[in-house]
Simulated assay, not measured.
Amino acid sequence: MSFSRSFLIRLAPCLLAAAVGALLSGCASTRARSVTKEPASAPLRTVSHVDLRRYMGDWRVIANIPYFGEKNCVDSIESYALRADGKIDNHFTYRKKSFSAPQKQMTALAWVTNHKTNAEWQVRFFGLITVDYLVIDLDPEYRWAVLGYPGRKYGWILAREKTLPPRTYQAILQRLKTQGYDPARFRKVPQLPSQIGDLH
């Protein structure tokens, strides 16, 4: 199957989901380094360090800023695998509207652009479209992560499990606010059939 360049460019926001990640450390140093609220125009602050080997594996998409590429997605999973050449295979699997729908997958290739922190990546789709991937918040035990995007048009909250404790989720939203994000823009992604329709 072949794709025109114009088609791929229009599809880029849809494919951005495969980069989650943010999205996509140790103790408090893995958190965003300031509690002062940043204006939306300020550069996002990444975490101080990401242990790539600990970061690899499956992450559930708990919430995101909705856009057409992930509209009506459920059971969404970001998967990362470190390659021998240092690059990262990235797979995004999901279902549309229903947990009984067939599972679909998109693939991409990622690489670290800041080797001091490992928190800044780029992700490429179809060998044409490259997007930024910033890890802006990360649990010391790698149970959850938050991915940002320059300009704050996109954002993702990921977790190893299908749910996050409400207090943890609310604390993440508050830290996103200090980074210049509007927490009200984030919507939960159903990871369990019982969550469909409960997107607040």
Rank of each mutant, 00 (worst) to 15 (best):
E70M: 08
S79F: 00
T36L: 10
F92T: 00
L109N: 08
H91I: 03
S34Q: 15
A101P: 12
I88P: 08
Y67F: 14
R83V: 02
E70S: 09
P66F: 03
A32E: 11
V74I: 05
R54G: 05
M106A: 10
G57K: 02
Y55Q: 14
R53A: 15
I62S: 02
R60F: 12
R31D: 06
A42M: 05
G26V: 06
H91Y: 09
K96P: 09
Y94V: 00
L44E: 03
E70N: 09
A84C: 10
K71N: 11
P66L: 00
S79K: 00
G26Q: 11
A101H: 01
A81N: 11
N72L: 05
I62V: 10
E38H: 14
R83D: 12
C27L: 07
R33N: 14
V74H: 04
D51C: 02
K37A: 12
S79G: 02
K71C: 04
K104P: 12
P39Q: 00
D85L: 04
A28F: 09
A42F: 11
E78W: 11
D85T: 02
I65T: 10
V61G: 05
N72K: 08
T36C: 11
E78G: 11
G26S: 08
C73Y: 13
R53V: 14
F99Y: 03
C27E: 15
G86Y: 02
A101K: 05
S25W: 14
R53K: 13
C27I: 11
R31E: 08
L109E: 15
I77N: 01
K104C: 03
A101W: 04
F92C: 01
V61Y: 06
Y55N: 12
L44Y: 09
T46S: 04
K87Q: 15
N72C: 06
G26I: 05
K37C: 13
G69T: 08
D51F: 01
P43M: 00
R31G: 10
K87S: 07
V47W: 09
L109W: 14
E70F: 08
R53W: 10
L52C: 08
S79P: 05
M106E: 12
K96V: 07
T46Y: 09
D51L: 00
C73T: 06
S25L: 15
D85F: 07
W59A: 01
Q103S: 12
L82F: 13
R54C: 08
Y67A: 08
A81G: 15
P102M: 02
S48V: 03
D89Y: 03
Y67V: 02
T30A: 12
K104N: 14
R60C: 11
R95H: 07
F92H: 00
D58P: 10
P39M: 01
G57M: 01
F92E: 00
V47M: 04
M106D: 12
E38D: 12
T46C: 06
N72R: 09
I77L: 06
V35G: 14
V35L: 13
G69A: 07
G26N: 08
E78F: 14
T46I: 15
C73W: 07
Q103M: 05
A101N: 05
R31T: 04
Y55L: 13
K96N: 13
L44H: 09
P66W: 02
M106V: 12
R54V: 03
H49R: 10
P39L: 00
S98P: 11
